[in-house]
């Protein structure tokens, strides 16, 4: 993609089996598209089953930005990871509701702690594949993700370009 290195990217790291994505830059179209790709690649590479996106410093979420987050949730679900948005401030929540962004579309948690607790049954290495409710994961998913469930190292997006 043209100009792939000219705009800022969001750094992300793996912690306790979750991919943590703290958004600390302004969300332009290209940044969001790149973020979407980066998250999907990282989930694919590391085999994490949980993604936590921190939007606590995001100023405004309009329907376009919300759509990208909804897409990220759906796409990561397709490759076996659940995404949770954290840090939606009360004032932003009011605007989002009026905008018509349904709670059903995006999983949310108040804090990082809550999000990790929510994801714990899904990402915990001890659970492995057997304890995960069948409806949450297909057999193909299970076989695929079981192979690299151990990957816990801190990883950043732009490693060795």
């Amino acid at each position: 993609m043209e100009g792939a290195n000219t705009f800022s990217r969001v750094g992300m790291h793996v912690m306790r089996g979750c991919l943590i994505v703290p958004i600390q830059i302004e969300l332009y179209d290209e940044v969001l598209q790149q973020l979407q790709r980066d998250i999907l690649n990282k989930v694919n590479d590391t085999g994490v089953k949980g993604v936590i996106i921190d939007v606590s410093v995001v100023e405004i979420i309009d329907s376009f930005i919300a759509q990208i987050f909804v897409d990220i949730c759906r796409m990561t679900a397709l490759i076996g990871a659940q995404t949770i948005l954290i840090g939606i401030r009360p004032a932003l929540a009011g605007a989002l509701t009026d905008l018509g962004i349904g709670v059903r579309d995006i999983h949310t948690a108040l804090t990082l702690d809550h999000a990790i607790s929510q994801l714990e049954p899904v990402v915990s290495p001890a659970t492995s594949v057997l304890n995960i409710p069948e409806e949450d994961m297909t057999h193909e998913d299970a076989e695929y993700w079981a192979e690299d469930a151990e990957d816990e190292a801190d990883l950043y997006v732009d490693e060795g370009q």
């Binding site: 100023e59 405004i60 329907s63 376009f64 004032a91 009011g94 989002l96 009026d98 905008l99």
Partner: peptide
Amino acid sequence: EKTARFMIATAVSELAR
């Protein structure tokens, strides 16, 4: 107040976009 400011900013963001 704050909530109204967010609503206004979101609406303007929507229209501008």
